[in-house]
Amino acid sequence: MKKITIKDIAEIAGVSVSTVSRVLNEKGNVDDSLRERVLNAIRETGFQPSKFARQFRKRITQVHVAIPIWEEPYLRVLDGLIEAFEDKEIFVSVGKSTEDSVADIVVLISDKDNCEGKINITVGSDFDNCSVVFDYFHAYKELTDFFLKNGKRSYTLLSTGLKDYKTCKLYAAFLKAMFHGGIEDYDVILLENEGDFLNKFSRLSDVVFCVDDVIAVRLIEALKIEGVRIPEEVSIVGHGNLTISQLVIPSLTTVEYFNRSIGKMCASVLLKILNGEKVPKRIVYKGQVIKRESSI
């Protein structure tokens, strides 16, 4: 006789495997009608979950990390989080979504997209939970003060548009930095596509802030072709501290937010949640300005 599995129960009940798992482990929210269908299927088949699996679930805490878009900065946070859990009895799974997760704790790492479903802590954007957010203004003010002291008077923000959480926050931080610096000569360029964006400049400012390192590197390469000297004629600032920011010539000044220390800090917060301790609703990280050849 074929051994009944959790997959069979899901097919009989007409639900997903994750729904059956939530019913068995009494985790997550399951609609009463779906729960009854699962329980009926279990009774009809005489299904019994593996004792080893049940003991494993009881002994090992499960943490699911959702990264909707796989990018280098997010993976640095993941690396730090996993490292912090190495000596703990915690199993970490990774995926692009939080939906249908049956883990004890769910972490979302993204400054662009939010996922629906159970989320305990978010890194990079505000959500209705414990959120680690970034003070973009602090870095822009530090850089603006530096440039003003070095005689830089005109500024431009080069953005891919105001289409997500990060670009909107950077736009607001740039305007605030201009106000606090008493700077009136500034401009904002919103790119609609990845075409020849040099045509978007009516003139070249002393400093160009870019919303990510990829755009900044493309700008550097385009300006070099035009014979523009960096940083003598224009200083370029990126965002993210991607590996490419160190390889481009001249090397790119940038700001790093997502890093291993953020991952380790998240791990300590998650342990407090697991222990039933109170955690702050909002944790603000100022980021790290990394000055390189494109600005000095």
Rank of each mutant, 00 (worst) to 15 (best):
K2G: 00
K3P: 04
I4W: 13
K7F: 13
D8F: 06
E11K: 15
I12M: 15
A13S: 09
V17Y: 14
S18F: 02
T19V: 12
T19W: 07
V23Y: 08
L24P: 05
K27A: 01
N29P: 00
D32M: 11
E36C: 00
E36S: 11
V38H: 13
N40R: 15
E44D: 15
K51I: 12
F52W: 07
R54I: 07
F56D: 00
R57P: 01
A66K: 08
I67K: 02
Y74S: 11
V77A: 00
L81N: 00
I82C: 05
E83D: 12
A84G: 01
I90L: 03
G95Y: 06
K96G: 05
T98A: 15
S101R: 04
V102Y: 14
A103V: 05
V106F: 06
C115Y: 09
E116V: 01
E116S: 09
G117W: 07
G117C: 03
G117D: 08
I119S: 05
S125D: 03
D128P: 04
N129G: 07
V133H: 10
Y136L: 06
A139E: 12
L143I: 15
K149N: 15
K152A: 15
K152H: 07
S154L: 02
S154A: 00
T156G: 03
G161S: 01
L162A: 09
D164F: 11
D164W: 10
Y165C: 08
C168S: 09
C168M: 10
K169F: 05
A172L: 14
F174G: 04
L175C: 10
L175S: 02
K176N: 12
A177I: 02
F179H: 10
H180V: 13
I183N: 04
D187S: 14
I189C: 05
L191N: 06
L198F: 14
F201N: 11
D206M: 12
D206F: 12
V207W: 08
V207F: 10
C210E: 07
D213N: 04
I215K: 09
R218D: 11
A222R: 14
E226C: 08
E226G: 00
R229I: 08
V234T: 12
I236C: 10
T243I: 13
Q246W: 13
L252N: 07
V255F: 04
F258Q: 07
N259G: 05
K264P: 03
K264H: 07
C266M: 10
V269C: 05
P280M: 04
P280Y: 05
R282T: 15
I283C: 07
V284L: 11
V289Q: 07
I290H: 00
S295P: 02
